[in-house]
Amino acid sequence: MPTPQSLPDNEQILAAVVRAWSGALNVGKIQPTDNFFSLGGNSLIALRTANQLSGELGVQLSIRALFEHSDLQDYVREIERMVKQQEHSRGEDAR
């Protein structure tokens, strides 16, 4: 798990999302093209999952991101984009 000063790398993000989806949706194996909602997700589960991942990864995630990027690989890419954006913001704040 990343510390508050460090942001997660791509492998940590993927592993965290797979764990979160697997647990929330009671699905054993998740494929890169699996869709959160096709696997049984709904808005309440999406909210809980986004909150869980925000805490675990130390990145502010919105439920909207999961609705707009509901395939695993797309959602992970979106989180990676958010992490890079937060890294950039942190770098500017340090100046």
Rank of each mutant, 00 (worst) to 15 (best):
A46V: 01
A65L: 09
I63M: 07
G23C: 10
D9T: 09
Q12F: 03
G55K: 06
R48D: 13
Q31Y: 07
H69Y: 12
S22P: 05
A65P: 02
S70K: 09
V27I: 14
G28H: 06
E68I: 00
T33D: 15
F36T: 06
L66S: 05
L47T: 12
P32A: 09
V59Q: 00
L53M: 06
I30G: 03
Q12K: 10
V59R: 00
H69I: 03
S54P: 01
S54Y: 00
E68H: 06
N42K: 10
L44P: 06
S38K: 15
A50V: 01
L39G: 10
A15C: 11
L57R: 02
I45D: 06
Q60V: 00
L72Q: 08
L39W: 12
A15G: 05
N51V: 04
A15Y: 11
L44F: 14
A16S: 11
D34P: 06
I13Y: 03
Q52E: 13
G23L: 07
E68P: 02
F36L: 03
G40C: 13
V17F: 10
I13A: 05
P32K: 13
P32V: 08
A65F: 02
I63D: 03
S38N: 15
S43P: 03
F37Q: 09
G41V: 13
L14K: 14
D71P: 01
N35F: 12
D34T: 05
I30Y: 05
E11S: 14
D71E: 15
N51I: 05
S22A: 13
E68S: 05
H69W: 03
G28L: 05
R48Q: 14
Q12D: 09
Q12I: 08
S22D: 09
S43C: 06
L72E: 08
L53Y: 02
W21V: 06
Q52K: 07
G41C: 10
L57F: 01
A50K: 00
G28V: 02
R48L: 12
Q12V: 07
V18Y: 09
T33L: 12
A15S: 13
I63K: 00
A16V: 02
W21E: 07
V18W: 08
L53W: 04
V18T: 11
T49A: 09
N26H: 15
